[in-house]
């Protein structure tokens, strides 16, 4: 691990009635690094994400975030406050844009809390007082910055729903980045992308890591994405952590190969795990 951990997850468990979706998972994610969580379908990856981003309250466990905005125990924050206070932004497996609104509006809505303050919680803004106008201009500039980076500048005034699929994925990342997070959680950002789009996505994520200096947590099925850009990988299977390490270690890990390819009997060149798809 290159740096001090940005996110430390300890003994995280999530039960739904009798079903144990996540069972005693501990891992750490470094700042300015891409940490991937991989695993076969139903391994509990998205449940971990939902716990981290405040959508679920974990049954047991502690999730500590030590970011630029201070230290937070995420399990104690209330739903939306994880994003508002601690600065954890996320995207969704099935894209969740504000479909009827324009691309630019999607990005400006993401800066809601900052703008709300600037408009004096709407009261001052309604009468044109306060710093709202300047702050809105700044918000548009920030949106433009991310539009440029995601190649959506020309589509800025289009309806979000009218964008092609790959562009919607990028817009969702841009929208998450507009909240100026300290930790960006991406739930299968490469799902449904073709090879070229997927390569562009890799580039974008590496740039975000290096330029914005934030931590990225990634759930991904596409091994070409995971192996190429991850700095660290955590592997889950049936809710348990079965391995963690840098990509080259994971590629050779016997448990991982078993989880992805089933019980290996005679063969199974270790390198093949790299191309395995669940």
């Amino acid at each position: 691990m290159p740096d001090a951990p940005l996110l430390t997850v300890e003994h995280l468990s999530m039960r739904f009635g009798g079903l144990v979706a996540v069972d005693d998972v501990s891992f750490a994610a470094a700042d300015r690094a891409i940490t991937a969580i991989i695993g076969p379908n139903g391994a509990g990856k998205t449940t971990v994400f939902n716990c981290l981003t405040g959508f679920y309250k974990p049954s047991i466990g502690c999730m500590r975030l030590d970011g630029a905005r201070g230290s937070f125990l995420l399990e104690r924050l209330d739903g939306f406050r994880v994003a508002q206070k601690a600065g954890v932004a996320r995207t969704f497996q099935n894209i969740r844009l504000f479909a009827g609104m324009s691309v630019l509006e999607n990005l400006v809505v993401a800066q809601h809390n900052r703008l709300m303050k600037a408009s004096g919680y709407t009261v001052l803004g309604l009468f044109g007082l306060g710093t709202y106008r300047a702050e809105e201009q700044a918000a548009v500039e920030r949106a433009r910055y991310w539009l440029d980076r995601t190649g959506l500048t020309n589509a800025a005034d289009d309806q979000a729903a009218s964008l092609p699929y790959g562009a919607q994925r990028r817009l969702e990342i841009a929208r998450a980045m507009c909240t100026e997070p300290v930790l960006l959680c991406l739930d299968e950002p490469a799902a449904g992308l073709n090879a070229r789009e997927s390569a562009e996505l890799n580039e974008l994520l590496l740039k975000i890591r290096d330029d914005e200096k934030i931590g990225i947590l990634l759930i991904e099925h596409d091994m070409s994405v995971v192996m190429e850009i991850s700095d660290y990988i955590v592997v889950l299977d049936y809710g348990r952590k079965i391995a963690e390490g840098v990509p080259s270690e994971i590629r050779r890990d016997a448990n991982v190969i078993k989880a992805y390819l089933g019980e290996a009997e005679d063969e199974g060149p270790a390198a093949r795990a790299g191309e395995a798809r669940p």
């Binding site: 939306f80 994003a83 996320r90 809505v109």
Partner: peptide, 17 residues
């Protein structure tokens, strides 16, 4: 804008704080 965003997708609103 938050009202309209809420109409479009409440879950995404919460994820944005």
């Amino acid at each position: 804008r938050a009202w309209e965003a809420l109409r479009e997708d409440e879950t995404a609103c919460r994820a944005l704080g």
